[in-house]
């Protein structure tokens, strides 16, 4: 049920209207101070921010229940702060600066009230509670936006890393190369296998040279995944050639009882390519 406007809200609105010039000026000055040097927000943007923020704040206080987070007025303010924080993040600004700026906005309101001797201590207490509640919610919204943006960035980075960490290249007609760098965990193996098997099918590849020079450690799980990939390649009817196995990896595989008897291995990627060419009957000679 909607509540009626309380005297606290009215007092705040009145203060805002009376001191709008003063508050707005302070907000803009602080905004320029915080964001001006880093070019995160231009002077015009800071002015627009200040005006829009005060308008939305008045609209919120003017609503039936300013603390109801589901009200359009509250949603509008949350969205406004969410968008600003997103913009700041995209432009390389620090979220810490923006949160401190928000704390400054809150302080501006409180300080403007302090100058008015007609506000009773009870009203002042209620106003402080109201302001802290509203600003806490807004800070949560900003924090939420920050987390979402970070997650989006991490997702994009992971996607890019996955794509660049498994560059399957058709180096010759029917010969694919796959350099593996880093660790082979289950999720990465699945991704590599999926794209590799599809490439074998689409390119009609007859040989796949898997270079593990970039794999520095091997445990039972990694070696199991390597064997799994080799087996899948063989099942497709292609030949898997494993190259670049370091001595320490070979030793580790022996101690893990991994049998590479059915796998064609070569010392280097170059030797692996030569073997693939031999399988295909390709002769590479100097011109």
């Amino acid at each position: 049920m909607a509540k009626n406007k309380t005297p606290v809200n009215l007092t705040l609105i009145e203060q805002l209207k009376l001191q709008v010039g003063n508050i707005s000026g302070r907000i803009e000055a602080q905004g320029r101070n915080v964001f001006g040097d880093s070019n995160v927000m231009s002077t015009d943007e800071i002015t627009d921010f200040s005006i829009e923020f005060l308008e939305l704040m008045v609209a919120l206080l003017d609503s039936d229940d300013p603390l109801d987070h589901h009200r359009p007025a509250f949603r509008a303010l949350q969205t406004f702060f969410g968008n600003i924080s997103k913009q700041i993040l995209v432009r390389g600004g620090r979220m810490e600066d923006f949160v401190r700026y928000m704390q400054f906005l809150q302080r501006c309101f409180i300080e403007s009230l302090g100058a008015d001797e007609h506000v009773s201590p009870e009203d002042m207490r209620a106003i402080l509670l109201l302001l802290s509640s509203v600003f806490n919610e807004l800070m949560l919204a900003v924090f939420q936006t920050y987390l979402e943006e970070k997650e989006r960035t991490i997702d994009a980075q992971q996607r890019e890393l996955r794509e660049t960490s498994t560059p399957i290249t058709e180096i010759w007609d029917g010969v694919l190369t796959l350099p593996i760098i880093g660790t082979l965990d289950s999720s990465r193996t699945l991704l590599i296998m999926e794209s590799l098997l599809n490439r074998i099918s689409s390119e009609r590849a007859r040989a796949v040279v898997m270079d593990v020079t970039g794999v520095h450690t091997v445990d039972s799980q990694v070696s199991h995944h390597m064997i799994q990939m080799v087996r899948a390649i063989q099942l497709m009817g292609a030949t898997a050639i494993l190259t670049g196995i370091r001595p320490e990896i070979a030793r580790a595989m022996t101690s893990l009882n991994i049998d590479l008897g059915n796998v064609t291995t070569r010392a280097t990627l170059s030797d692996g390519l030569k073997e693939a060419f031999r399988l295909l009957g390709v002769v590479v000679s100097k011109a």
Partner: peptide
């Protein structure tokens, strides 16, 4: 065995 599908090879290898 010819024409093994990537999905089948993937599943079998596991």
């Amino acid at each position: 065995c010819i024409h093994m599908q990537p999905t089948a090879a993937f599943g079998l290898a596991t």
